[in-house]
Amino acid sequence: MKASGVIRVGVWGLLIAFLLKPQVFAPAFAPLTQHDAPAIYDQGDLATLAWAHLGLVLTATSLSALLAIGLAILVSRGPGRAFLPMSRSLVGIGQTFPPVAVLAIAVPLVGFGIKPTLIALVAYGLLPIFENSLTGLSQVPASVLEAADGAGMSPIQRLWSVELPLARPLMIEGLRQTLVISVGTATLGSTVASQGLGEVIIAGLLSDNSAFVLQGGLITGLMAILLHDAVGLIAQRWQRPVQ
């Protein structure tokens, strides 16, 4: 196994061990606490919170991917092309919109809990995937499209077996960006009472316990890096038979 493989397995092992048996790591966090405060988050089970966090991120990212790729396909052909310039301006504006503001504006619309967080994550996750899918689809050379037409492919066949595979690497890059952003943004959900690892960090901020803040931050940071890495790995495996 290569060095990168060893590191990967090691980091996964560390994260899972920490989630399942956090008390083992208590001595490492104890120096950060004051006045005998608990070193490990004690107001809930870390594994449950991490699981809820992961579920939220994966649900939101799947929804974003479906919507974003669908929209990118729509605006890159037929009458949808009229929307292409506008969708580019929309992406530009969307990227300037702060995630906190999306969350803050979603709360009055749908109330507290998981719903505003999901809306903010889906809306914010759309942009990287949409932009990359659009770039990927519009970079397919015209000669390739003509060859596909010449071979008698229907527009749907052409999309499915020529355009999408060629655009795939860029789409996956967008997906990875969205995953990393979502894991971080989902922690903000805890300010509007949605379950997740943000709870640990906020509990630490409120009780002035740096150990909580650090472990919440480490778990989310590791989760983001591992998801980014895992999607890259899956994409590599998937790409191989095509080449």
Partner: peptide, 10 residues
Amino acid sequence: TIPSIALYGM
């Protein structure tokens, strides 16, 4: 990759 609220806290 560190969430902003965690980085502030750390």
